[in-house]
């Protein structure tokens, strides 16, 4: 019994500081899932570190600083297998982060909250001096804190692995704007993870059954993620370049075409091909429609942070709404 006594709280907490006990019990309840999450984190770190070690170990076969294994500057480019494999793996890093967020949301919805509501074990906590609000708060605060810490580590590690591959201009799949890369490069990753926690909690208190709550969470998160992903380029105004100019560095090309004298945009795809015209010389077609000068809209590399921060802000606002709604639903039903 002595081990048990040691774990009993030595300092009594006041009635206001009521989250410590519920959080500790929650940790104990889900010890196994916690180990699994930790293992996943280590695995993620291990993959990135392993890839980077592999690339530097294979560097002896490279004849050129950009990773070419053939003579430098001879027109053909052949990277080592380590490089091409690493590029392929890292190009999915953002997708992995989004899937991970979905997994977190589904876990919060099902095993963490809805299962207790379904099986009735929530009443154990509620009769043990824990209010419904504290009970839910513990189930939100603990995953939110763990997920923020874990995803921050993953993002930093991913950025380290990603930047190691950027020395070469011949890497095509690791642009900062690519949908498979972008979410893993910044705070957006944390935004998605926190939104997942919030949506999971909301659908759990609304649906109150384990499997349907998990399904609803996955559905909502998929819709939000795909929706935002499709419109990510609209989250910050693009910069327009004329006469074939383009920004320096790694820019995200959004739109291009020609402008008429009155400033109207003509796009080859919508105005020439879309109008049923048989594809001809693009420039000639657009000129025939009144185009006089080329334009191109870009997100230059400097737009990385504004885009990330706007997207994160949207995700956090959605998460806050979901959390507020979840508390309201719980209060209305249980007083």
């Amino acid at each position: 019994m002595s081990a048990l006594d040691l774990r009993a709280p030595a300092v009594p907490t006041g009635p206001g500081t009521g989250l410590r006990g519920p959080v500790r019990v929650l940790l104990r309840q889900h010890r196994r899932s916690l180990w699994t999450a930790g293992a996943l984190l280590v695995l993620g770190i291990g993959i990135v570190v392993g890839l980077r070690i592999w690339v530097s170990a294979a560097a002896s076969a490279e004849l050129c600083p950009d990773g070419d294994t053939t003579a430098c500057g001879d027109g053909s480019y052949l990277p080592t297998q380590a490089r091409s494999a690493t590029e392929a793996y890292l190009s999915g890093g953002g997708t992995v982060v989004l899937l991970l967020a979905g997994l977190i949301g589904v876990f919060v919805a099902g095993p963490l909250i809805a299962r207790e509501l379904e099986s009735g074990t929530f009443r154990l906590a509620w009769t043990q001096s824990v209010t419904p609000a504290q009970w839910l708060a513990a189930r939100l605060a603990l995953p939110a804190a763990l997920v923020t810490a874990g995803v921050t580590v993953l993002v930093l590690v991913y950025r380290w692995g990603w930047s190691g591959m950027r020395s070469t201009s011949a890497v095509y799949e690791l642009g900062w704007y690519q949908s498979g890369v972008n979410p893993a490069l910044g705070p957006v990753a944390i935004g998605y993870a926190l939104l997942a926690v919030a949506v999971g909690a909301l659908s759990a208190v609304v649906v109150r059954r384990t499997v349907p709550a998990m399904g609803a969470t996955a559905l909502v998160l998929a819709v939000v993620t795909l929706g935002i992903g499709k419109r990510r380029y609209e989250l910050w105004p693009t910069v327009r370049f004329l006469d074939g100019n383009r920004p320096s560095g790694d820019a995200w090309h959004i739109e291009s075409g020609m402008l008429t004298a009155s400033g109207k945009e003509i796009s080859y795809w919508t105005d020439c091909v879309g109008a049923g015209t048989v594809p001809e010389d693009p420039a000639a077609c657009m000129r025939k429609l009144g185009g006089i000068t080329d334009f191109a809209d870009y997100h230059p590399a400097s737009h990385f942070w504004p885009l990330q921060l706007v997207e994160t802000g949207i995700l956090l606002v959605l998460a806050a709404l979901a959390v507020a709604l979840a508390f309201r639903v719980l209060r209305r039903r249980h007083g």
């Binding site: 048990l4 774990r7 009993a8 709280p9 009594p12 907490t13 009635p15 410590r20 006990g21 519920p22 500790r24 019990v25 104990r28 309840q29 099986s119 009735g120 074990t121 929530f122 009443r123 154990l124 906590a125 043990q128 001096s129 824990v130």
Partner: peptide
């Protein structure tokens, strides 16, 4: 239906009671 956390042991359940009722 005597709600209890099925995955906890008897000792851990009593420990949880102590955690959740620090004052009494």
């Amino acid at each position: 239906d005597k709600p209890l956390y099925p995955q906890l042991t008897v000792a851990a359940t009593l420990w949880a009671g102590a955690e959740l009722n620090p004052e009494t």
